[in-house]
């Protein structure tokens, strides 16, 4: 598989499929038995990779430790040798991208909510200004506000030219952010392709709303079988009710 800059890839699969192992391979925490990992065509060099690839771990709020949120976000950049002014700029940029409340910067990272902690750890990674990012279950532990915020954050990062891999079990959320989906089972890539193709493949697990729309479509209702958001499903069904079939 290959991930390009400016691309968001969704990685999913059952428990034990090897998603987290793949993540560890990508950042050099594990060494591959077979095959190679290349970043920007360069041979794999652990120290360089850690600078180029930012990782958000599943329980990322466990990694916070500094006295203030600001210091915690600055931990990564200061380790990678940014000078003080650059660190400040990076932290401010990251906080803006993530949409964190500026008043939180002086607070202790342990006094804020779980969802905010997740955003702080995400900001810590954005502040390292990596070329690529791997996010393991970024939706887990986020509150509703954070969940609606996250796709926008990813969009901004994508526009900045970052290649992003999102690992998640939440299929509906994943489909919402990633145009390209990779499905992993027992360490083997079963599917790698566009979102629309994924939704039409019957052998792969689907979000409940897609399964419903597919059934309705099979019964002869004029709905889109590749619908994956509840919002769009409601819209289509409303059109059906009013009889405006063309719009549906």
């Amino acid at each position: 598989m290959c991930i390009k800059p400016g691309e968001i890839v969704g990685l999913t699969g059952p428990v034990g499929a090897g998603k987290s192992t793949l993540l560890r391979l990508l950042v050099g925490l594990l060494e591959p038995d077979k095959g190679i990992v290349q970043i920007d065509g360069c041979p794999f060099h652990v120290k360089k990779v850690r600078e180029m690839v930012g990782v958000l771990f599943q329980h990322s709020s466990r990694q916070l430790f500094e006295k203030t949120v600001y210091d915690d976000i600055a931990f990564g950049p200061s380790n990678f040798g940014f000078d003080r002014r650059d660190i400040e700029r990076q932290v401010n940029k990251a906080v803006n991208i993530v949409g964190l409340d500026k008043s939180l910067l002086e607070a202790s990272p342990f006094g804020i909510s779980g969802g905010e902690q997740k955003l702080v750890s995400l900001a810590g990674i954005v502040a390292q200004s990596p070329r690529y990012m791997v996010l393991d279950e970024p939706f887990a532990g986020l509150d509703t506000k954070g969940k609606t915020r996250l796709p926008h954050i990813l969009q901004t990062l994508q526009n900045m030219g970052l290649g992003i891999i999102v690992i998640s079990h939440h299929l509906d959320k994943l489909l919402g952010v990633a145009p390209r989906i990779i499905y992993l089972r027992d360490g083997i890539i079963c599917f790698d392709g566009q979102r629309q193709q994924y939704l039409l493949d019957d052998s792969l697990p689907l979000p409940p709303i897609t399964a419903l729309m597919k059934r309705l479509h099979a019964r002869g209702l004029p709905v889109n079988p590749a619908t994956f958001t509840v919002k769009s499903a409601i819209k289509q069904l409303e059109y059906l009710e009013t009889g405006d079939v063309d719009n549906a």
Binding site: R50, V53, V55, R62, G76, N79
Partner: peptide, 19 residues
């Protein structure tokens, strides 16, 4: 195991480079 997890996360944030 917990320590290992945190250690890996901090490694990815550049732990062991300077301080």
């Amino acid at each position: 195991r917990f320590l290992k997890e945190v250690y890996q996360a901090q490694l990815c944030r550049g732990l062991g480079r300077q301080k």
